[in-house]
Design a protein around this nucleic acid. Sequence first.
DNA 1: TTATACATACATTCGAGGATGTATAATGGG
DNA 2: CCCATTATACATCCTCGAATGTATGTATAA
Lengths: 209, 209
Amino acid sequence: MVRKTKEEAQETRDAILDAAEQVFQERGVSRTSLAEIATAAGVTRGAVYWHFANKADLFDAMVQRTFGPLDAQLQELRAGDDENPIRLLREQAIQFIDRAVNDPQYFRLLEISWHKCEYVGEMAAIRDAHLECGNRYLAASIDAFRLAKERGFAPASLDPHCAAVGFVSLIDGMVQNWTMDKAVFPLAEYGPAVIDTYLAGLGFDLALL
Amino acid sequence: MVRKTKEEAQETRDAILDAAEQVFQERGVSRTSLAEIATAAGVTRGAVYWHFANKADLFDAMVQRTFGPLDAQLQELRAGDDENPIRLLREQAIQFIDRAVNDPQYFRLLEISWHKCEYVGEMAAIRDAHLECGNRYLAASIDAFRLAKERGFAPASLDPHCAAVGFVSLIDGMVQNWTMDKAVFPLAEYGPAVIDTYLAGLGFDLALL
DNA sequence: TTATACATACATTCGAGGATGTATAATGGG
DNA sequence: CCCATTATACATCCTCGAATGTATGTATAA
């Protein structure tokens, strides 16, 4: 039970992160002590403090583990050279919804960061990162709507900024409400339908998507 | 500083609730001690414990103070005998947005319950109340869409449940995103526009609203 | 005279953050 | 290739402050 190999050390680190997800989801971030996480992971607080400076650092690592790779997908959106950029925007939104529905770990992270965590104090940095990521997604959406308008897929009256705000708010709102109580409505079914409703309201021809 | 009259006692109670709003917003619910609230209110912990059993009880009272009367407005929606119930639904949604923009106390409560509070443990009861309130609003929205369809204001293909989920999610998402950073977009301006976009996508004639 | 509306003081618990111990893997020298 | 050294990956221990809840004191309104 001492001095593991580097691989084993990585495993315990992952075990701590896994345990943190579980306990954070059950008891909330600020109410869980590092001792609880250690116990859930089958180690002592010493191990936790070895791998992470404090709870905020642990939380940050936990978030980065699953939300970090998400940035790559964002780049894909901006680099997309589809004739109609809204097609890709729609695709990725539906992918996001599908992942929230089917990937339990992703769901846990969403639930924790939305309903089991207070974005204040040392968590403010994480909040800012979260917010900045959201803003980059919004910026990409604005670009997509603007491009689509220039290419004639949307009416000239369309305001790209307003349209994008509504689009991302719609998705955020649906997934957030769904994470509060999955039984209220079937997200996998309603999600795409509501998105298409909104896009139709903007004047897009759904047959072209 | 001793034995006040009943009126004065009510004033200190309100002062404690006011202070709680401020401190909760600044530092988050779980990170603020009752001592901080007491100091901010200009009293001691004794006063806080006299008026409230503990932090959860205080939080509950704080929420009820501003969100309690909201239920009455909900009844208004169900009792509304407008020919087109979506007109009233739209009106109330815009009122909600306006209040979030113009009423600082209302905004504080929204920000606290969305971003500065963890819905776990003893707060779970409050979460459930919050959720139940949301579900009642959703139920009222479903009714409104169903009625509107029956009366021919919407195409026969409209699914009232799905339409209502999208509607409330849209509003929730916009106001939530706006509370995270007011500078990203003008809620008072975009809110109604996005709502109308969505309603148009559902097939409603905006001229009739 | 009693209940109220607090202030003050006290006991207890709990979690954070080091300090320290320690067995072993990794590394370098002969 | 073997051995000594060092760094690693934890476990254990200790101290400290902070927050909670309660108990008690007390002046005044009722």
